[in-house]
Design a protein around this nucleic acid. Structure first.
Lengths: 327, 327
DNA sequence: CAGGATATGTCAATCGTTTATCATAAATTT
DNA sequence: AAATTTATGATAAACGATTGACATATCCTG
């Protein structure tokens, strides 16, 4: 039933357990001959050191917790997928935690990750009021959201993104420019997209039209509200602070017989590869997902290797506007 | 640096370490008073038993490995997300393994999961020729793909799905019905979709037109090939064996000025919530994702609790056709 | 109040690996 | 040939929790 253990390898290789351990952990004096013998025995027995026993010794688990709202959303799916790939390259394993916008679940996760002695956490969920983050002694890096004092945030320049999108709509002739965004309950840089929008409208002395949908609204509910907004016929442009909402707007506009972009200009936000591949017509603001991944992981690994490295509080990566046919 | 341990709880609660362990593992005689005292101490100290130490004792890690091609694909993203949620409910943690259609990566994962002593594995990747599956002594359940003798497969009735979609296209007047599917290198029930298609064409004595794209083709490449196929103007209907390809077909058809469904009828396959929400117009064959999740997890847990339970080799869940406006 | 049931404690071994300490032996340098 | 350096082994104590064996004390019940 039980697997191969270190002593089995030692026996097979005809050396002592100590020597096998020395080979595995590469310390002390070792002859090449012994190293080869041991490696061969490990291969022949298909030996894998027991992670539990190693980390009991304080070796680190090589486990990283990933806390995101849900990987069923293309944006987080893409982020998680790339994160996982890069972590695996670097020898880490990923524990997936879909917080599902559920505060209690997120707290449970935090406890669970601590109990599992993960080496670090990357958190990008949207729940507020989780004081546990204040006391976590683990290395954490946050994605796009304030968690607690001393936890670095990686995000993009949402203010600039909001400005880019809105100014673009204005340049294309939009004068009744609405924004559809989430309720900014969470203390996240994401809310700056709205600020960017407002700043541009102010510069052009236009009246802002702000629609805020709670994050936990179903797409169906959102679609219904969007239909209502559109059928009032009071707007000529919409800036959606995520691509999926923009797609809903386009769908509903088509149902209502509105021509895009003539009757209605639409801009999204995120620009995942998914949307670029399957909705190439959508104008959107590109978030630098690959750079997010690189930076998040680099920072986390720095923290893991040295708990005292000085990291900035906030890293803001630049965004890019991408012209499609919907604006 | 180090966290709270069992002996700290014992001290705080004023009882012995054995008693604390008895409380945690719920065995032996215990008074309610003691139980409460210990629980209170655990809470006050925010104690979490060290998973490593527990599983060294043979307690099981409560870890489950999830091997899928990539969660950046809406279908697998949804599957993974729901799987993770249900596993968490049942007290399991999910290690995410995106095999990325990379055989070597998948083998590495298998090794890694064994070293981490996961309690079980659910594998739904698409790689062929991984003999390791033959020797894994862990409980495994496969999603939609043959792995090795004795590993149960959960899938849907792809043959029937292929028939449903194709017959529907015929009923709507399609006579030049093409299929776009993957190359059936992987030994998976999925390939039965093609068989279903062929069977219907045969019944109606129509000429099959089969286009097969390798799984690792980029969407861009696929789109280009689709454009070529469509511009030859030889078909009036397409059955795509996944929704995303169907979306590409629709995009390219629009570019070419083809009216849907008049000039071209399109049917997809999968019917994720994502597609239902954001592409409600697409006709598609619904896979029973929720039932997949329930069944996969129930079977796996059965195997975990009793390695000798008799499970079927193949579980085929029914699919449903869903009428949209593209057919 | 005897005797079983209940409640708690002490002690020690165990899980598989790491690592420090000592010991010893061979190989290499001076 | 003596002195180092290199190579390996034997032993044992961790890491944190579990659990069986055994001891003891309190409780309840007939």
């Amino acid at each position: 039933m039980m697997g191969i253990k270190l002593t089995d390898v030692a026996k097979k290789a005809g050396v002592s357990a100590t020597t096998v351990s020395r080979v595995i952990n590469n310390y002390g004096y070792l002859s090449q001959k012994t190293i080869d013998k041991v490696h061969q025995a490990m291969e022949e027995l298909n030996y894998q050191p027991n992670s539990m026993a190693r980390s009991l010794q304080g070796k680190g688990t090589q486990l990283i917790g990933l806390i995101f709202p849900t990987v069923s959303h293309p944006f987080f799916g893409e982020l998680a997928s790339k994160m996982e790939a890069k972590l695996f390259e670097k020898g880490y394993k990923t524990i997936l935690c879909d917080s599902a916008n559920d505060k209690e679940k997120e707290r449970d996760y935090l406890r669970m990750l601590a109990a599992n002695k993960v080496d670090g956490i990357i958190a990008g969920a949207h729940n507020l009021g989780i004081p546990e983050y204040e006391n976590v002694e683990l290395p954490i890096i946050s994605f796009d959201r304030y968690l607690a004092e001393g936890i670095p945030i990686v995000s993009s320049d949402s203010y600039q993104g909001g400005r880019l999108a809105t100014e673009h709509l204005y340049q294309r002739g939009g004068r009744k420019i609405a924004i559809i965004t989430g309720t900014n309950e969470s203390d996240s840089p994401t809310n700056q997209r709205l600020e960017g929008y407002l700043s541009i409208l102010k510069e052009h002395q236009l009246e802002p039209m702000v629609y805020q949908f709670p994050l936990d609204h179903s797409p169906f509910l959102k679609a219904t509200e969007i239909r209502q907004i559109l059928s009032k016929n009071e707007i000529d442009s919409v800036f959606c602070t995520d691509d999926l909402t923009a797609i809903l707007v386009i769908n509903k506009a088509q149902e209502l017989g509105l021509k895009i972009p003539e009757d209605l200009k639409v801009i999204g936000y995120d620009g995942t590869e998914f949307v670029q591949n399957y909705f190439p017509q959508l104008s959107t603001v590109l978030q630098p997902i690959d750079q997010f991944v690189d930076l998040l992981i680099d920072l986390l690994i720095k923290r893991i290797n040295n708990a005292d490295v000085d990291l900035d509080n906030l890293y803001q990566l630049p965004v890019k506007f991408m012209q499609g046919q919907t604006s």
